[in-house]
Design a protein around this nucleic acid. Sequence first.
DNA 1: CTTGGAACATGATAGCTGTCAGGTCCATGT
DNA 2: ACATGGACCTGACAGCTATCATGTTCCAAG
Lengths: 181, 181
Amino acid sequence: MSLFDQLHPLTPSEREFTSGAHLFRRGDEVSVLHLVVAGEAHLVRHRADGGTLVLQRALADMVLAEASVFSKHYHCDCVAVVPTRTLAVARSAVRTLLAVDPGFAEAWALHLAHELQATRLRAEILSLRTVAERLDAWMAWNGDGVPPRGTRRAVASEIGTSPEALYRELARRGEAQSPTR
Amino acid sequence: MSLFDQLHPLTPSEREFTSGAHLFRRGDEVSVLHLVVAGEAHLVRHRADGGTLVLQRALADMVLAEASVFSKHYHCDCVAVVPTRTLAVARSAVRTLLAVDPGFAEAWALHLAHELQATRLRAEILSLRTVAERLDAWMAWNGDGVPPRGTRRAVASEIGTSPEALYRELARRGEAQSPTR
DNA sequence: CTTGGAACATGATAGCTGTCAGGTCCATGT
DNA sequence: ACATGGACCTGACAGCTATCATGTTCCAAG
């Protein structure tokens, strides 16, 4: 049973944000937890020099700022980078459920542990030097096989390279797939 | 109260591993959860082509393979890359505590949420293109200021560059710190 | 004080990738 | 049939970084 299913009894409200709209701002009181249904929202922190630092890119089916459940106020801004819909569940309801329902607490911890595992893997892949190594690592994890058409730009973004570089690497393997290196 | 403190009542046993020793292997039954006290242990998965994929690098004060608490068997190997000491707490004790003690469950979830936040940030930093951008991001998070001497090689590794590249970037800023770019 | 080792630092070079600039293919709507 | 947009693909080139090489500085142990 997924987290989304477990949260449904909490009668979440659906919310909609236009591109560029803020889901919340730093300092705001944390009243709800957002689950992204469609679109993309970024957790960002503004730097002194005017630049921004992205802390999380939440796509569809992702939970936004899990740590906010334990904090009274937000520590950073959240912006929709494309038109985005979310399910908002009351923070108080989540906290109550965590304290009262061991089954939910376990599901929550399981979600966090899996997300952590996936993110650690992504960080390790991103610390590899060449596109070839990153693609190898990606394939080792995602059941060997090149990424299917239609998903390659997303994969390129996931492993931190330009689409062009990924296309070239795939082409290199297509013509002579024996020497990966 | 930290996770380490909360786990102490569980009478953990101290374990010691020589460089290269396995803490556990894929398929082993999960009997304990390791907290790294000193040294460094890697969670690794072996690839078909003989290469290895690192899933987590656990240094001192880090918890190893949090997701293993929810799994009966390990899904990957764990190797000490330098002489390493750990505290091992029984998996069953942790699970019982999670189910019985809401306070511990919350501390556990808090730990996972913070670790997740830190790892997401690292992944975002690693997806930046230049050393200058990565250092800016690192500084924005670690209370503006260049990394102190003695820690620079570690920082270089953290942000995924060679020590030389970091030294050069720091030198570039030292002589004329106004234009970060 | 000397010595050894590690971090710090910097020059030179080769290699890889980001970017720009083109182009093809294909599904969709008209 | 036609137009449109997006993914896919490739060539060319500038730019950045990893690596190697070669010191220098710092510090702790003897």
